[in-house]
Design a protein around this nucleic acid. Structure first.
Lengths: 345, 345
DNA sequence: CTGAAAGCGCTAACAG
DNA sequence: CTGTTAGCGCTTTCAG
């Protein structure tokens, strides 16, 4: 009824000092057992909740971490978020989600929240370091920031990532093992480092098997559904179209398969497709998508573990932490068709 | 270098009082123009950021709102989040995301964040009011809470929702108009009110067309992919299986179509399927899913608008706000097959 | 073991 | 228009 319960209300009713109440409520300090229980019972009876702002102001820590993603609308991030959340709450931290929409201004804004007391540390899944006045500032070594999933080259900040190059190569090798020789790649936006790594993995695997990459076999996409369709269209307008596609993410792979269906090209009978990410709905897709699974929950959990270390003054890992991926073979890949396919509309 | 810049640093360098700095930085107050600019320039030069905790402690408002969803892992919520976010940031509010996992304890926890100063108001997308000590507490009328998407019956709290019953009926009517007579329904978990509304819409449309609902034609699912498969299995083990399915959400519809494919039942040639939600990937699915589109961004935006009103002391709408849905006809629905299908494994 | 007192950084009265 | 003063609610010395 009468507004909110404060520490002094409890203190007053019990005839003790506010300081004693504060101590009795905290875990650390030593308060005489009878007092301690009386305080706790009263606090519970009055439904007392400490004011976070007062506490944070005093202790200079917010007990919150910031999780900044590029696009909260991308289902891909969801499990990472869960991994972070689970660890965070276990350690008593709240998780604040930030959504940059790839906008430099907003990235900066979240970065500032570290300084204005909103959060104590941050996990970045954006592939960019915030800029100050247009130029990237070198992060102080002790700033509690962890990069997850993405890679920021040259940043002296702990990284949790996967071996994108190796995983891509493995995916391509799967196609090669199946007997494919004409394998094309639909990449993500090339300025982005993850796209480059996956592209490199593709080239590496092709080179290792002495397979040529004909002109036009490297299509550049945007990671979005429709760009998979477009890239696929370009690929199959080629005089000598591929028999297999390694696509840099699942979403574009769905788009590509869709396009193939429109052209009455059968997957996997005529053309095999491998994706990357292992999205939840990949299973329900037809055909079920062969793809590279990323350990998303673990990436989130590991990143939070490291952040927690940073927050308690421990040093982060000197080397990037690499988590293992797994090629999930489902129904979108098969050996190439026996007879040589010729150009047909 | 020397820790963080505070108001008094600026004041000291400029030879003015902290109060003047505070006023000069705020929009409202009147400060002599020269002072005002000098303060602002100095603040910018020192890269000053006001401490949110101190400010919140003093002003008793956090300028943050809480957005609580049932499962952050569900892509369905994403656009709602965006709608909320856009409005919130335009009004200077930060959005804190809460994730309940359907856990009563966690729902409560977020609710408490309203009282401990974390946030000033909240948008609930959980279908449940938080409980205190096991029982639902009636929310004070003036508590800044808005329910979006879900419905909590009997709660005197502003609602932003869609007409689930009407939208479901429209979907079923589409099937009826196509010529279907044997139409089954896969519902969500029935304790949930949204599932009930959609179920009612189905029954209503069937009744209005004088169509019977044979035993077994109402299957209960969980809104999850595999439950769509299972329900579909049960349906097509029936002696007289349906020629059309109205499924309470897209995810289960994907599962159902998958199951149908395994049984070599063609969609939409043999059986038509309508979903509900219009998930992003529904387009890429094969066949492209006919479904009910919910105006998700608008739901989020409208909910935030109302919350903003509540936060400024205005009254919320007395009646629930109903936003229009739209039946999106794509490729998963068609007239029923001409010849009567007989039972076949 | 407990109380008194100070102070985190900010803004809002209240004077001037 | 600006400075002084007080205080938001909490934790933490420092005494006792």
């Amino acid at each position: 009824m009468s507004g909110k319960t404060r520490i002094k209300d409890i203190a007053f009713r019990l005839g003790v000092s506010p300081a004693t109440v504060s101590r009795a409520l905290g875990d650390t300090d030593i308060v005489a057992e009878p007092t301690r229980t009386r305080v706790r019972e009263m606090a519970r009876a009055l439904d007392y909740r400490p004011d976070v702002n007062a506490r944070s102001l005093r202790t200079r820590k917010s007990m919150a971490v910031l999780l900044v993603v590029r696009d909260i609308g991308n289902p891909f991030y969801l499990e990472i978020v869960k991994g972070v959340e689970a660890k965070a709450r276990a350690a008593g931290y709240a998780v604040l989600m930030g959504n940059t929409e790839n906008d430099a201004g907003r990235e900066n804004e979240y970065f500032n929240m570290l300084r204005d007391g909103h959060a104590d540390g941050m996990i970045l899944i954006t592939g960019k370091l915030p800029k100050q006045r247009g130029r990237t500032v070198p992060l102080p070594d002790d700033l509690p920031v962890v990069i997850a999933l993405e890679v920021i080259e040259g940043a002296a900040v702990p990284h949790v990532q996967i071996d994108n190059r190796g995983a891509a190569a493995e995916a391509v090798r799967h196609l090669i093992d199946l007997g494919h020789r004409r394998i094309a790649h639909i990449s993500g936006p090339v300025p982005e480092i993850l796209s480059r790594y996956r592209l490199e993995g593709y080239r590496q695997a092709m080179a290792a098997a002495d397979l040529p990459i004909p002109p036009g076999y490297e299509q550049r996409g945007t990671f979005l559904l429709h760009s998979g369709e477009e890239a696929c269209e370009a690929l199959f307008d080629l005089p000598d179209p591929p028999t297999a596609l390694f696509v840099a993410n699942d979403e574009m792979a769905f788009g590509a398969i869709n396009q193939l269906r429109k052209r009455r090209v059968r997957v996997p009978n005529d053309v095999s497709v491998v994706g990357f990410d292992d999205l939840y709905l990949g299973e329900a897709f037809f055909p079920p998508l062969t793809t590279v699974n990323q350990p998303r929950t673990e990436i989130g959990a590991k990143a939070m573990d490291i952040l927690l270390d940073l927050l308690t003054g421990e040093a982060g890992p000197a080397e990037p932490v690499i988590l293992p991926t797994r090629l999930v073979v489902r129904g979108s890949t098969a050996p190439p068709p026996k007879k040589k396919r010729t150009k047909e509309s």
